[in-house]
Design a protein around this nucleic acid. Structure first.
Lengths: 197, 197
DNA sequence: CCAGTAACTTGACACAGTGTCAATTGACAC
DNA sequence: GTGTCAATTGACACTGTGTCAAGTTACTGG
């Protein structure tokens, strides 16, 4: 079979990409580094991915599948109240970020030179926003959305709160554990978005 | 006097840098673009700044002076209560970000290739953190710091809340006005950090 | 077993951007 | 007028991305 070897190499490149980005926090990883880690020549990478950003985008998609993003989202989707949904969504995302951090950071930094990377990152963040919207709308449906918010503005604010740079600041810079991060963000979100009533 | 022309050119480069970065949101601005905008040759820029990151760092310092960052900080420093200090600091910083956004973003993106840029940005953010700490300590001194926080964790959280990417998300991506941003961040901060008592 | 095909290798090169160097020009100061 | 220093010009080294062409290896199907 011809495709098995193709897929194999492709997968090896993706695994190597993720490994390198994870190890170097997404900074300063070159195509030649990834090729070396994959055990193939630099040029051969281009037989599978058109460009660096193409590879980065594919790596994020691959990671989402590998980490079973849909499976992990199931608990929050099954929540029976708005508050529960909000809590479980933060729980999911807060524990997910550390696993995608390297790739996310690389995509974030590639925005400088590369328009395609910027678009791809925005797309990935739009998906995360859907989860935020669902949680806020669940709150709104329960009449437990704190006063002063519209569903749109509350979604904006929750989405922003959960952005990767915030996780980065609190854990990498301030030395918080992921558990601390999750707990505090939950507390801030509850105080900000959930009506006391 | 010989130094007047030197300073003049240096200043022209800094103004051109800020102008270009502002106009292009900090993305894809090259040394040759800055030189062109300054009306000098690309190589001449290196007579005044050792490297691109050196120029970016100098531009942020120059901007801080030009925008009179100390003068703008005076109101929050003169606050007579912790709550007032918190509010006025958010007011200051929230209105300051849009003016430094281009340069800030460029420095942020330069982190990829450049270690010096990363260090410089962290230094600038450390300065912003001092303002956060002062506000939190003022709250703590008034016994109005919300329960569940230590001064350290509250400073971490407030500092993170005020980071540039959050302003970027809410204004650039979500379409909020700066006034909206300032008001909502104030509300979130008050609900999160100020004791109801 | 042999022919063909597809992945991969190697070496070369184009291109963009940063940073350096040397020789030259031009202005201003003493 | 002569020296000094900013700035110019042209050339070049270096890094990283992306492309191309020619050759090699390995598997596949007749």
């Amino acid at each position: 079979m011809m495709s098995s070897r193709i897929i194999d190499t492709r997968t090896r490149i993706l695994d190597a990409t993720i490994h390198m980005l994870e190890a170097h926090a997404g900074r300063g990883v070159r195509m030649s580094d990834i090729a070396g880690e994959s055990g193939i020549s630099r040029q051969a990478v281009y037989l599978h991915f058109a460009s660096r950003s193409d590879l980065l985008v594919a790596a994020t998609k691959y990671l989402d599948e590998k980490l079973d993003v849909d499976g992990r989202l199931a608990p929050s989707r099954a929540a029976t109240s708005g508050v529960e949904r909000l809590t479980l969504y933060i729980e999911f995302w807060g524990n997910y970020i550390p696993e995608i951090y390297g790739v996310a950071k690389a995509l974030l930094l590639a925005q400088d030179s590369d328009e395609a990377a910027a678009v791809a990152w925005q797309g990935r963040m739009a998906a995360m926003r859907d989860g935020c919207r669902a949680a806020i709308e669940a709150l709104d449906g329960d009449d437990t959305l704190a006063s002063g918010w519209t569903p749109k503005t509350a979604t904006d604010a929750l989405w922003t709160l959960l952005l990767v740079p915030n996780w980065e600041a609190l854990t990498v810079e301030c030395g918080w554990s992921t558990k601390q991060y999750v707990d505090e963000i939950k507390a801030i979100a509850r105080r900000s978005f959930v009506n006391a009533a």
